[in-house]
Design a binder for these strands. Sequence first.
DNA 1: TTTTAAATGCAACTTTGTTGCATTTATTGT
DNA 2: ACAATAAATGCAACAAAGTTGCATTTAAAA
Lengths: 143, 143
Amino acid sequence: MDTTIDSLKKLLQERDLRATPIRLEFLELLRLNTPSAVTLSVIQEACHNTDRVTLYRTIQTFLDKGIIHKAHQSKEEVYYALCNSNCSTKAHFHDHLHFKCSSCSQVTCQHLNKEIKFLLPSFQINKVEIHIEGVCNRCNTTT
Amino acid sequence: MDTTIDSLKKLLQERDLRATPIRLEFLELLRLNTPSAVTLSVIQEACHNTDRVTLYRTIQTFLDKGIIHKAHQSKEEVYYALCNSNCSTKAHFHDHLHFKCSSCSQVTCQHLNKEIKFLLPSFQINKVEIHIEGVCNRCNTTT
DNA sequence: TTTTAAATGCAACTTTGTTGCATTTATTGT
DNA sequence: ACAATAAATGCAACAAAGTTGCATTTAAAA
């Protein structure tokens, strides 16, 4: 039987990273919040037993290895979320969209299912990141 | 005759801001770089006679008054650019797009002339900011 | 179980941004 | 053109955020 922890361990080991308790706790936090992204301060609070420096290094390692990605929603805090399986040690592939709900204030990663490249005909587009604020579908229908 | 400096002075005075040399130098720098956005470090280098604190306060004032806007291209540096005339002391109106060229590494503000709201049918969209990386039209045609 | 390279924790440091207050200066009214 | 004054600036001290070096601990491989 393949538990959640096992799959996270596998995720790490596939990238030559050791499956330490801190890393597993970190990834489990992000996984539980999917598809929402998590702020650094929430991560720090959840991992308050862990040294600040270790968290910074863990984040940097995970960014480098294509396990998580960063979202700067508007001007304020930095958010982190798990990457999809397209990302690897080599490179990140994110043509996606971060939506911040004005009502529940969650930042969620939305799949970008329509082409956006027509927007700039004479440009060669390699990477797209979109930040949107508004009211998310859940808040929109329940209020 | 209405010089550039005069129009910048007018821009400031319309918003109850004094037309000081520092502010005029700052705005002239951004104006010269239009439609590219300018990094904080470039601003600091260009205004190296000016106190750090004054620059931070100048930026904050201009953001508040709708004179400039901030762009976080990807993960790294903060960029600033002049707002269009839609923005005011009351609010910013930017449904636009920041494009970072992989070749010349300039970040330019591009007008968002097509609707993007169809991308998320069940969401209410209030604010859109898009970050794109690729090769800009100038580099694309000259190489 | 032993070995070892990776991961972590701690202390010190750097970088970046902020606050309070004294000084200077752009603007207004005379 | 000059004086008055509120805004803008500069300086010093501080606070927050992130980094580096190194000693200790630990996951994974032999």
